[in-house]
Structures are given as structure tokens and as C-alpha cells.
Simulated assay, not measured.
Amino acid sequence: MAMVEKRATVILVHGAWAGGSSWANVIPPLRDLGLEVFAAPIPMTSLGDDVAALTRYLDRASAPVVLVGHAYAGEIIAEAVTHDEIAKHDPSGPTEITYEQ
């Protein structure tokens, strides 16, 4: 049986003035590449709640993880990294963290 290379899980995190649907044009091309993709809905109620929402999506992800954040999402991702939320899910850490404005 041939070994199949493990593909990354991409978690897209929206900014303060958007929702998960803002990634609608990004998700299909990534999935076409064979990647597992989630657009994490962030509640925007507090930074703690937003980090917790991201953590729930990390629970669903299989490593390696690529985190992509727009604007305020960079703060959410940075907070999750700072508090080792990501390390709990993948001790080697995320493969990539990308912030976009």
C-alpha cells in the first residue's frame, strides 16, 4: 500500500467586520488542492471567547495546521499561540501562521 502524504488543515479566521462567509471564494480552491479547510466563526463577544472559538476548530483539525487570519484575527491567533492553545493540539506548533489586512 502506498503512503499518502498528509495534507495540511487550513483554518481561516475572519476579522472584526466580517464573518466566516468572507472566505467563501477562498475555500473551494483550497479544497480542490486536497486541503481540509475550516472558516472558524468567531463570536466577537470578547477576546477570550474568540480564542475559545478558535480552539474548538483546532480540536477538529488534523495536523499540520495552517492558520490564516484577517486583521483582528491576528490578535486572536497570537493570543492562542501565546497561551499554548495551539501547542495542545499539535506539539510541533502550526505549520504556518498568516495574517492579512
Score class of each variant (00 low, 15 high):
1 M>V: 01
1 M>N: 08
1 M>I: 09
2 A>Y: 12
2 A>W: 09
4 V>C: 09
5 E>I: 05
8 A>I: 00
9 T>C: 08
9 T>E: 01
10 V>S: 07
10 V>N: 08
13 V>P: 05
14 H>N: 11
16 A>C: 12
17 W>E: 13
17 W>S: 10
18 A>N: 12
19 G>K: 05
20 G>Y: 01
21 S>R: 07
22 S>A: 15
22 S>R: 08
23 W>Y: 08
23 W>K: 14
24 A>T: 15
26 V>M: 13
27 I>M: 03
27 I>L: 01
27 I>N: 01
28 P>C: 11
28 P>Y: 13
30 L>N: 00
30 L>V: 03
31 R>E: 15
31 R>I: 10
32 D>Q: 15
32 D>M: 10
35 L>C: 00
37 V>H: 08
38 F>S: 09
38 F>I: 04
38 F>A: 02
41 P>K: 05
43 P>A: 03
44 M>Y: 02
44 M>R: 15
44 M>T: 05
45 T>N: 09
46 S>Y: 11
47 L>T: 02
47 L>R: 13
48 G>S: 09
48 G>D: 13
48 G>C: 11
50 D>M: 06
52 A>V: 00
53 A>C: 01
53 A>M: 03
53 A>K: 00
54 L>G: 01
55 T>S: 15
55 T>A: 15
55 T>G: 15
56 R>Y: 03
57 Y>C: 00
59 D>T: 06
59 D>S: 14
62 S>E: 14
63 A>L: 11
63 A>N: 07
64 P>F: 00
65 V>N: 07
66 V>Q: 13
67 L>E: 05
69 G>I: 03
70 H>A: 13
71 A>Y: 07
71 A>W: 07
71 A>I: 01
72 Y>C: 13
73 A>D: 07
75 E>L: 14
77 I>D: 06
78 A>W: 01
78 A>G: 15
80 A>N: 13
81 V>A: 12
81 V>R: 05
82 T>M: 05
83 H>K: 06
85 E>A: 10
86 I>G: 05
88 K>P: 04
90 D>F: 05
90 D>I: 05
91 P>E: 15
91 P>Y: 03
91 P>S: 11
91 P>M: 10
92 S>K: 13
94 P>T: 02
94 P>K: 06
97 I>H: 08
97 I>Y: 01
99 Y>P: 00
99 Y>T: 09
